[in-house]
Design a protein around this nucleic acid. Structure first.
Length: 796
DNA sequence: TATAACGTTATA
DNA sequence: TATAACGTTATA
C-alpha cells in the first residue's frame, strides 16, 4: 500500500462523500469551474490524483508483450482469465506521463512546452503534478513563481509544489517515493523498493528517495545539453582484475574458516552480538559514502589495481562534502552517533574477515581492500539514520534554493538516483538506436557492415533465431555477438507520436560521427578514431570523458569499451548500477560477493542477451536461482563458487532444461548447455550434480571443484567415464582441497584426451609420488610437468 | 465502443 | 506481506 492515501482520505471522505464512493474508486478531482479553482489552501493535504499513463516511448513501452510473465499469462489473449488486468512485466513504463487530458488547475489549459523553443523557458509552462497535494499546474500559473518547488526528476512532470515544499509537507512523499504513478519502483524486477525496510523515512533512502532539485536548476537538469552530472558512471570501474589461474581460487589448506567469514561479512541477517539486528541490506548511501571516503583516502593516488569507482565530478563533490561538513559541524545528532557505532561494528566484522582473508588468501584479489571497513571508518560514512534527518533535508532544500548546490554525501546518492531515470531513458534510447544503427560502421556504410552491434532489444526481438547461432560460436569471447544482418528485424516502430508531456525528449539519433565544435564546424576526427583512442582508457578515465560533453558521453558509453564490468564486492547494487550495466551491455559481468537480489539479477540477465561471463561467487542461492528462469543463451563462464545453499537440488534446478513450452526451448536442452567454464568451488555438491553437469554441459572445458568436500574418486570416474562428453571436452580441472580425492583419480584422468591442467594441491590423499607417476606414464603421449606440489600442467 | 492497464482494495 | 482482483480511467 505504498500509495495509500489513507489518513488524508478518511479526513476528506468525511467531508462529503463518505460511504458513497466505491472502495477503489478515486475521488473525482476537486476541480470546479475551470479557472475558478482555488489552490489547495482551503482543503486537505491531498486531492485526487490523476492517473498516469504509459509514455509509449521508453524502451519498456516499445516492447511487445512477453507472453510469459505472470501478467501476460493472465491476459485473455494468452489464454488467461483476464482478471488481473496488469501490464506485461517487461512493458511496465519507466516514465509514466500525465494523461493528455490533464490541465492546469489554475488556467485550465494543457501543457504548453511545445510552444516554446528555449528549453529553459519550457519548465514554467509544463504541467507539473505535485506528489504531495496532487495538484497539476503550470509553474507559471502559480502566484509565487520563484518559491522553489522541488522537482522529482524521476517522474516526468512531477514535483513538490512550492506550497507543499515550503510547508515542509512530507507525509505523502514518504509513502510515494517516486511520486504518483510510478509503477516502476515497485513492480519492475530489479527494483529495490520492495527491499527497503518499511517504516524508514524514505528521505533516507538515498538511492530511491525523491530526488530534489529546485526550480532554478530544473531546466539545466532536465534539458541541458551537456551532461555534467553523469554520476551514473559509477558503474564504471577498473576492468576486472584477473584472478589467479583463470579466476579460480587459490587454494590454501587452512581455509576451512571460509564459511564463517561469509557469515561475518556477507550475511545480512547476522544478528549483532550486542543485540540489535545489524546490517540490513546495505543502504545506497553506504556505497556512496564508501566511494567518497575511498576517494578521499586515495586522493591523488593512482592505485593501478585499486578498486575504484569512477563517476563524474568526484573531486568536486568531495569538496562539496567537506564544505557542507564544515558548515554543518553540529550535524551529528544522537542518531548519527548510533550510526557511527553501528558502522564501526560493521567495520570490525569486516576487519576480521579481512584478516582471515589475508591468512587464507582464497579471496585474494589485487583489487580491493574491504570497502566496508573503509567506508565505515568515516564518522559520516555509516548507514543512514532511521529518520531524524529531515531537518537537515529541509535545510538542504532551502539551501539549494539560494545557491549552487553543495551536496553532502547523503545527498549525492539522491543526485545519483536522479540520474537514474535520465540514464534509464538514455539507456533505452541508446539501445533502441543501437538496434538500428551499426556502431562499427560509419553511418554511410551501414549496409556493408558485416557485424552489427545488436542491442538487447534487438536480441530479445531476435528471439529464437538467435539460438541456432549460439552453437556456431565456439567459446572464444567475441567483442560483439555475431549477428546476422537480420538483426534489423529487431527494429520496432518508435513512438512516432510526440508526447506532450515528455520532459526529456530522448535522442533518437545515433551517436554523432563527429564532435560538433562551438564554431559550428565538426571536429576533424571521426568517431571511430575517437573510439580507438578511448579504447586505451581505463573505465575511470572513460567516466571522466563522459563528463566532457554529450557527444563524448555517448561515445564513451559504447559497449565495446565496456566488455567487462566488475562490481564485485559492491556493498549494494542499486537501480542506477543496473541501468548503467544495461546501457553498457557488457560481455563479462562480475557481481561476486554482492547482495544482488534475485529480481535484480533476473532483470539484468534478461537484458544482457550477449553476456558470456557471469561471476556470482559468494552470492546467495536465492539470487543465483534467477538463472533458473532467465535466459542466458550465450553464457560461457559461470562462477557460482561459495554460493550458500547451492547443493545438489539447486544444481538440478539450475541445469535442468526448462519445462515450459516456449518456442526455441522445445529441444529439452539446458539453458546452461553452452557453458565451458564452470566454477563450483566450496559447494556441497555430490556425484548427483556431476552427473547433471556431464549430461547438460557437453562443452565443459574448465571445471573448478576445489573445496568441494563431497567430491571423491568416484566423481572423477563419472566425469571421465567412457561415453561422457566431459571426458573429451575437459581441459582444466581444479580439485584442490578436495580431501576425499586420492591418487586413484589421476588414473581416471588418463582417459581425458584434452586434459591440460590438473590441480590437486592440498588434497591430503593425493601423493606427490602419485603425481610424478602420472606425469611419467603420460609422457608417452603428452608431457606433463609439476608446476607445484600436486599441480600438473601439460607442456605445450 | 473496445482495449489496456492504473491504483486501489481484498485476500491468502 | 505479497498476490489477486477489479472498478475505473485513458486512449484509440
Amino acid at each position: 500500500m505504498a500509495l495509500s492515501l489513507s489518513a488524508d482520505d478518511d479526513e476528506y471522505d468525511s467531508e462529503a462523500e463518505q460511504q458513497q464512493r466505491p472502495a477503489n474508486r478515486p475521488k473525482p478531482p476537486k476541480v470546479g469551474v475551470a479557472g475558478t479553482v482555488k489552490l489547495a489552501a482551503s482543503r486537505g493535504p491531498a486531492g485526487a490524483r490523476r492517473r498516469r499513463t504509459r509514455c509509449r516511448r521508453c524502451e519498456a513501452c516499445l516492447r511487445t508483450e512477453c507472453g510469459e510473465c505472470h501478467f501476460c499469462k493472465d491476459m485473455k489473449k494468452f489464454g488467461g482469465p483476464g482478471r488481473m488486468k496488469q501490464s506485461c512485466i517487461m512493458r511496465q513504463c519507466i516514465a509514466p506521463v500525465l494523461p493528455h487530458t490533464a490541465v492546469c488547475l489554475v488556467c485550465g489549459e494543457a501543457g504548453k512546452e511545445d510552444t516554446l523553443d528555449e528549453e529553459e523557458d519550457k519548465f514554467n509552462v509544463m504541467l507539473m503534478e505535485c506528489s504531495i497535494c496532487n495538484e497539476i499546474v503550470h509553474p507559471a500559473c502559480l502566484e509565487v513563481k520563484d518559491a522553489g518547488g522541488v522537482v522529482n526528476d524521476e517522474l516526468p512532470n512531477c514535483w513538490e509544489c512550492p506550497k507543499c515544499s515550503h510547508a515542509g509537507k512530507t507525509g505523502k512523499a514518504c509513502k510515494q517515493k517516486r511520486g504518483p504513478g510510478f509503477k516502476y519502483a515497485s513492480n519492475l524486477p530489479g527494483s529495490l523498493l520492495k527491499e527497503q525496510r518499511p517504516g524508514r523515512d524514505p528521505r533516507e533512502e538515498g538511492d530511491l528517495a525523491t530526488p530534489a532539485v529546485t526550480v532554478a536548476t530544473v531546466a539545466r537538469r532536465q534539458l541541458e545539453e551537456t551532461p555534467r552530472h553523469r554520476l551514473e558512471e559509477q558503474v564504471a570501474k577498473k576492468r576486472p582484475a584477473v584472478p589467479p589461474a583463470d579466476g579460480q581460487a587459490w587454494p590454501r589448506p587452512e581455509d576451512d574458516a571460509l564459511q564463517k567469514k561469509r557469515k561475518l561479512t556477507d550475511d545480512d541477517d547476522t544478528p549483532d552480538p550486542n543485540g540489535g539486528n545489524k546490517r540490513k541490506s546495505p543502504k545506497p548511501d553506504q556505497l556512496l559514502t564508501s566511494i567518497i571516503k575511498r576517494e578521499q583516502d586515495e586522493e591523488g593516488g593512482s592505485r593501478e589495481l585499486g578498486y575504484q569507482w569512477n563517476y563524474g565530478e568526484e573531486e568536486e563533490e568531495e569538496e562539496e562534502e567537506r564544505e557542507q561538513e564544515a558548515q554543518e559541524g553540529t550535524r551529528h545528532t544522537e542518531k548519527a552517533e548510533e550510526e557511527e557505532q553501528e558502522a564501526r561494528q560493521g567495520a570490525r566484522h569486516t576487519e576480521e574477515a579481512q584478516e582471515e582473508e589475508e591468512r587464507g588468501g582464497v579471496f585474494r584479489t589485487p583489487s580491493c581492500e574491504s570497502d566496508l571497513s573503509r567506508c565505515n571508518s568515516s564518522p559520516r560514512a555509516g548507514p543512514s539514520g532511521e529518520g531524524g534527518l529531515e531537518l537537515q533535508d529541509k535545510a538542504r532544500v532551502r539551501a539549494r534554493a539560494r545557491r549552487p548546490v553543495r551536496l553532502p554525501c547523503r545527498e549525492l546518492s539522491r543526485e545519483l538516483s536522479k540520474e537514474l531515470n535520465q540514464e534509464i531513458q538514455k539507456t533505452e534510447d541508446c539501445l533502441a538506436n543501437e538496434s538500428r544503427q551499426p556502431v562499427k560502421a560509419e553511418p554511410d556504410s551501414e549496409t556493408d557492415e558485416p557485424k552489427r552491434v545488436v542491442s538487447m532489444a534487438a536480441m530479445e526481438m531476435a528471439g529464437d533465431w538467435l539460438r541456432p547461432c549460439e552453437r556456431e560460436t565456439n567459446g572464444a569471447p567475441l567483442r560483439e555477438p555475431p549477428m546476422q544482418p537480420t538483426a534489423g528485424a529487431g527494429r520496432r516502430p518508435l513512438g512516432v507520436q510526440m508526447e506532450r508531456h515528455v520532459i526529456r525528449p530522448p535522442p533518437i539519433s545515433p551517436p554523432p560521427d563527429r564532435l560538433p565544435l562551438a564554431d559550428g564546424h565538426a571536429h576533424i576526427l571521426r568517431r571511430e578514431l575517437w573510439m580507438a583512442i578511448f579504447s586505451h582508457l581505463s573505465h575511470q578515465q572513460l567516466c571522466v570523458c563522459m563528463r566532457i560533453c554529450k557527444t563524448w558521453n555517448r561515445w564513451c558509453c559504447d559497449k565495446r569499451l565496456w566488455t567487462q564490468i566488475d562490481l564485485k564486492r559492491s556493498k549494494s547494487i542499486t537501480p542506477l548500477m543496473l541501468s548503467g550495466i544495461i546501457r553498457r551491455q557488457p560481455i563479462s559481468l562480475d557481481l561476486s560477493w554482492t547482495n544482488i537480489s534475485k529480481k535484480q539479477l533476473s532483470w539484468l540477465i534478461n537484458r544482457l542477451p550477449g553476456l558470456r561471463v557471469l561471476l556470482l561467487s559468494g552470492c546467495s542461492w536465492v539470487a543465483v536461482s534467477a538463472l533458473c528462469t532467465s535466459s542466458c543463451p550465450l553464457l560461457r563462464t559461470l562462477d557460482v563458487q561459495w554460493v550458500e545453499g547451492l547443493k545438489d537440488t539447486q544444481m538440478r534446478d539450475l541445469l535442468s532444461p526448462p519445462t515450459d513450452n516456449r518456442p526455441g526451448q522445445l529441444d529439452g536442452r539446458s539453458k546452461l548447455r553452452n557453458v565451458t567454464d564452470l566454477r563450483l568451488a566450496g559447494l556441497d555438491i555430490t556425484d548427483a550434480s556431476l552427473r547433471l553437469i556431464m549430461r547438460h554441459m557437453p562443452l565443459l572445458a574448465r571445471l573448478d571443484l576445489s573445496y568441494c568436500n563431497h567430491i571423491t574418486d568416484q566423481s572423477v570416474n563419472i566425469l571421465t567415464a567412457v561415453g561422457s562428453t566431459t571426458r573429451d571436452s575437459l581441459t582444466q580441472i581444479n580439485l584442490s582441497v578436495c580431501n576425499r580425492v586420492t591418487d586413484q583419480s589421476l588414473s581416471f584422468f588418463k582417459r581425458c584426451g584434452s586434459i591440460c591442467h590438473i590441480d590437486l594441491r592440498f588434497c591430503k590423499q593425493v601423493t606427490p609420488e602419485g603425481c610424478q607417476r602420472f606425469a611419467a606414464e603420460m609422457s608417452v603421449s603428452v608431457q606433463f610437468s609439476l608446476l607445484e606440489d600436486k599441480l600438473l600442467q601439460k607442456l605445450s
